[in-house]
Amino acid sequence: MSTASTVPATAGDVKENHGSLHIGDLEVNFFDSVDEHSGLPPIVLVHGTGGSTRSHFGFLFPMLAAKQRVVAVDLATPQGPPDEGQIRMAEQVQAVIEKVLPDRPVTLAGYSLGAVVAATAAGTRPDLVGGLILMAGWLKTDAQQKLRNDVWRALRQSDVEALRRYQAFCAFSAPLLAMLSDGEIEALVSSFRTDDVMAAQMEINRHVDLTDVAPKIACPTLIVAGTDDLMTPFRQSKRLFGAIADARYTEVTSGHAMVVERPAELVHLIAAFNANPNQYPAGAILPARRP
């Protein structure tokens, strides 16, 4: 979870193309695995706060790209009022879809802030999105989240080292952190960023509100919540489940960092939904997975 660099997201056998486009003075980078493999809809991935395609989707991008085309957007952080952040970022996603995958249904999958952006993109341009996956998203920033945001902001002013520790504490589930050695904890702590881009995205997080846009989402939607998520508690995902008409809901046993804690389970959920979005009807809570 370190950098927002535009190093290619993958290696192995995925031959992704890197491209970019401009919206105003923002440069938006994206990656495209190109190879269709099958008749499945392409998947468009949108990363979360402080992340990038590489840092959040180093696993999901290449592993999903083994079976279907994957495009991932590296969000550019807009200047301007933070309450317009979600829509400015959604425009970037819409522009990438129109450029790279015009005139075909895509499955749009967002994680954390990326879920907010994806939901906004799907609600404002329903014609672009055939299926929507919201991982660790939220409907409207609530008092618990604002309190955490306050602490984040205060620590950034007073003690950046403490801020990194606080981020690790908040991002990962208690059971995962409990298993790590001291060295592994320190490696995790040092990977967190505290720069101005991160701070700007935290301001956007304070102002998220999908209340109006959620009812406009028309496509089949899968909501994925982390049982142990402190940053976007699962109850927030349940609010999305209530607000989006054609939604189904499932939980993974994870903290907010589900892309790190349960990446294979996310591949399963995303791939299965992409192959058959209506395997479970609107309103369904997916049956528990008991491997």
């Binding site: 290696a11 696993f59 290449p62 592993m63 349960r262 389970e265 491997p291």
Partner: peptide, 16 residues
């Protein structure tokens, strides 16, 4: 199970 399943990424030669 899910941790082990994530190890398939190495079998599929994903560099990291």
């Amino acid at each position: 199970f899910w941790y082990n399943d994530s190890r398939f990424a190495a079998r599929r030669l994903i560099d990291d």
